[in-house]
C-alpha cells in the first residue's frame, strides 16, 4: 500500500516537472535580450548565422519540441556560455558545492533550532525563552545579504579569524561563514516551529499521563513529547532541504562559491537557456522528491496516517 503510494507520487512528479520547464522556457522567451547580444549591435548577417546555428530561426513549436525531446532523454545539451561543457557537466560540478553548504547549514539549523525551541518550550516565559525567541525573530527578519557581509566584516576583515570567501573543498574553514549565514534564518524558523509544536504537545493529556507514570522530565520530553512536537519541523524540512541543497543564490554570490545558485544567476544574466532549464529541472525534481520523502517519513512517525 505504501509502495503503491510512492509509485503514484513519482509518476505525478513527471508532468509537474514538465510544466515547470515549459513555464521557464516561456519566461526566457519573454525576457528581453539574447545570449549573443552584446553592447555593439551585431551585423545582421552574423546574427542570422548564429540564429540558424542554434535553431532559433525555426518556429517556436519546433524549438519547444526539440527542447522537450532532449529533456526527456535527460540531455540538456551544451551551455551556451561555457561552450566546452554540457549542462550535465556543470550540474555535477556545482552540485557538490551547493549540497555541502546546504546540508551543513540545515544540520546546524536543525540541531540548534530544535534544542533552543525545546528548551524555550519547557520553560515558557522564562529568560531563556524570551532571549532565544528574540534572537529567532532577529534571525528571521535579518536578510542574509545583510548578515553575510556583517559576518565577513567582523570575523574576516576585523578579527582575521576566518577566510571571507571562496570554495576550498570540504572540510575547510572557508565553509564556516557561508554556512552560518545560510543557516541563520532556518535556525530561527526551526526554533520557533519547535517551540510552538512542543508547547502544544506538552499541554496535551498524554504528557500528563506520562508524568503521572513517574517518568523523569527528560524521559517525558524525549520519549513522549518530541515526536509529536517535531512534526511541524518535519514538514518544513522537505522544501527547505530541497531549496538549500540546490544552491542559494545570495549566499553563494556573497561568498563566491562555485555552486548551483551562482551559476543559476549567471545563466539568467547570460540568457543561457539550456543551463537555466537544466537547473530549474533539477531544482523542481529535488523539491518534489524531498516533499515525497517527508510524506513517507510522516507515515513512519505518525501511525495514524495511512496512504
Amino acid at each position: 500500500m505504501k509502495f503503491r503510494f510512492i509509485v503514484r507520487r513519482l509518476i505525478v512528479t513527471v508532468p509537474m516537472v514538465l510544466i515547470v520547464i515549459t513555464l521557464t522556457w516561456g519566461l526566457i522567451r519573454l525576457a528581453p535580450g539574447n545570449f549573443y547580444s552584446t553592447e555593439k549591435k551585431l551585423p545582421p548577417a552574423i546574427e542570422k548565422n548564429i540564429r540558424a546555428k542554434y535553431g532559433l530561426d525555426k518556429p517556436w513549436y519546433v524549438q519547444y519540441g526539440r527542447m522537450m525531446w532532449n529533456i526527456v532523454r535527460l540531455d540538456f545539451g551544451n551551455s551556451l556560455k561555457y561552450e566546452n561543457e554540457t549542462v550535465n557537466d556543470i550540474l555535477w560540478r556545482t552540485l557538490p558545492v551547493s549540497a555541502t553548504i546546504g546540508l551543513l547549514a540545515y544540520l546546524l539549523a536543525l540541531v540548534v533550532g530544535v534544542l533552543t525551541g525545546t528548551l524555550a518550550a519547557l520553560k515558557p516565559n522564562s529568560k531563556l525563552d524570551y532571549v532565544s525567541m528574540a534572537l529567532a525573530m532577529l534571525g528571521i527578519s535579518l536578510p542574509n545579504f545583510v548578515l553575510g557581509p556583517i559576518l565577513v566584516l567582523v570575523f574576516s576583515l576585523s578579527l582575521y579569524w576566518l577566510p571571507p570567501a571562496r570554495w576550498n573543498g570540504f572540510p575547510s574553514w572557508n565553509l564556516v561563514l557561508p554556512v552560518l549565514t545560510l543557516s541563520a534564518i532556518y535556525m530561527a524558523y526551526i526554533a520557533r516551529l519547535t517551540r510552538a509544536g512542543m508547547l502544544e504537545v506538552l499541554r496535551s493529556d498524554y504528557i500528563r499521563t506520562a508524568r503521572a507514570k513517574g517518568l523523569s522530565e527528560r524521559q517525558v520530553v524525549v520519549r513522549h513529547a518530541l515526536r509529536g512536537g517535531l512534526l511541524p519541523v518535519v514538514s518544513f524540512t522537505g522544501p527547505a532541504l530541497a531549496i538549500l541543497i540546490s544552491g542559494t543564490v545570495v549566499v553563494e554570490r556573497i561568498f563566491a562559491m562555485p555552486g548551483l545558485g551562482n551559476y543559476f544567476i549567471n545563466a539568467n544574466l547570460n540568457r543561457d537557456e539550456p543551463l537555466i532549464i537544466g537547473i530549474v529541472a533539477f531544482v523542481s525534481i529535488a523539491v518534489l522528491v524531498f516533499n515525497l520523502l517527508v510524506d513517507i517519513a510522516y507515515a513512519f512517525i505518525d501511525p495514524r496516517i495511512r496512504y
Binding site: 493529556d205 499521563t209 503521572a212
Partner: peptide, 17 residues
C-alpha cells in the same frame, strides 16, 4: 507505582505515537 491516576478522556490520554 504507589499512587496512580486514570484521566477523564481516554481518547487523548494515551500517546498516539
Amino acid at each position: 507505582k504507589r499512587i496512580s491516576m486514570i484521566f477523564q478522556d481516554p481518547m487523548t490520554s494515551l500517546n498516539p505515537f
